[in-house]
Amino acid sequence: MLPLAEVPLDFVAVVALIFFMAGIVKGVTGMGLPTVSMGLLGAFMPAVAATSLLLVPSFVTNIWQLLAGPSLLHLVKRLWPMMLCIVAGTMAGASLLTDGNQQWTTAALGLTLVVYAGFSLLARQLSVPARLERFLSPAIGLATGIVTGATGIFVIPAVPYLQALGLSKDDLVQALGLSFTVSTIALALGLARGGALQADGLVLSVLAVVPALLGMWAGQRLRDRISPATFRRWFLICLLLLGLELALRSAW
């Protein structure tokens, strides 16, 4: 990434617009900011650079979501094996993101978007029996971490798994905030270990918090005027098409 003083204003404007749009999605659906921002940023820059840009907006918006609910301590006690494995998997997977193979990382990013959007559109609601949770949580955390480290996307398979635990609506939102916050911190550590974090990129990431929060505010207002289910369906369709474009482009 160029030094901050040399970054073109049109690039800054595009980044701000992307984070504003991603914030709207998060404001309406309660999730999606890293996924949308990674997908759109990955369309015109290396995935590792896009990941560096999303770190601060992702952390700020997810820590807000994490602290808004009433059950943080209970969720930490319940989900700590999953969170610990997310950290381990992300640290391992980040080496794939920082090794400089842009074609591979773009393909992985596109395929992850396709899998997530396709699953969310077509799959029925899953249910995880309580007796299996102690075995599944570490495995899901490790898989999520590897995907996070390799692509910068936090949602597969953590989101379907958490949705299958039978949590209340408020607890689910807070559990997602916990998972995304841990993933963001682990991703930052993985990028730093791989030498992929630069001061100028972090400054631009800090600046991106403003449009992201404005987008969240707009999305929360929009949620009262539209059907969240309909918005989510079209959002996933667009995500599916974006993922296909990224995957096919990397194969050419």
Rank of each mutant, 00 (worst) to 15 (best):
E245G: 05
L239W: 03
T184H: 04
G190M: 01
I185G: 05
S227G: 13
V203E: 05
W217R: 15
G201M: 06
G190H: 03
G219Q: 05
R233S: 09
G215M: 04
F180K: 08
P211E: 06
L241S: 13
A186R: 00
L176V: 14
L187Q: 08
D224R: 13
G219M: 04
A229S: 14
G190L: 03
W234M: 15
D200H: 11
R223E: 08
V206A: 15
L213S: 06
L242D: 03
L178N: 05
S227K: 02
R233F: 10
L213Y: 03
L189M: 12
F235W: 06
P211K: 02
S227F: 00
M216A: 06
A218W: 04
A192H: 12
A199Q: 07
V210F: 13
F235V: 05
L204K: 13
S179T: 04
G243I: 05
A192T: 12
A192W: 11
A175P: 01
T184V: 09
D224T: 02
G243K: 13
L246G: 01
L214H: 07
G243Y: 04
L202R: 06
G195N: 10
P228N: 09
L207V: 09
L187K: 06
V182M: 00
R221L: 13
F235H: 11
R232L: 11
A188T: 04
R232E: 04
V182W: 00
L214N: 04
V210M: 08
R232F: 11
W234D: 12
V182L: 01
A196E: 04
I237E: 09
D224N: 09
F231W: 09
L214Q: 04
G243R: 05
A196G: 12
S183P: 01
I237R: 12
A229Y: 05
L240G: 10
R193I: 05
L176D: 03
R232V: 07
I226P: 09
W234L: 15
A212C: 07
A218Y: 03
V203N: 00
Q198G: 14
R232N: 15
V206R: 14
R232D: 00
S183L: 07
G177M: 03
R223F: 11
F231T: 03
L191I: 04
Q220E: 15
T184P: 07
A186Q: 00
G201P: 02
F180L: 12
M216T: 09
L204C: 13
L189G: 13
F180Q: 02
L244F: 14
G195S: 09
L240W: 06
L242N: 05
V203W: 02
L204V: 15
E245S: 14
P228W: 10
V210Q: 00
L189C: 13
L207R: 05
L236H: 03
A212R: 12
S205V: 08
L191R: 03
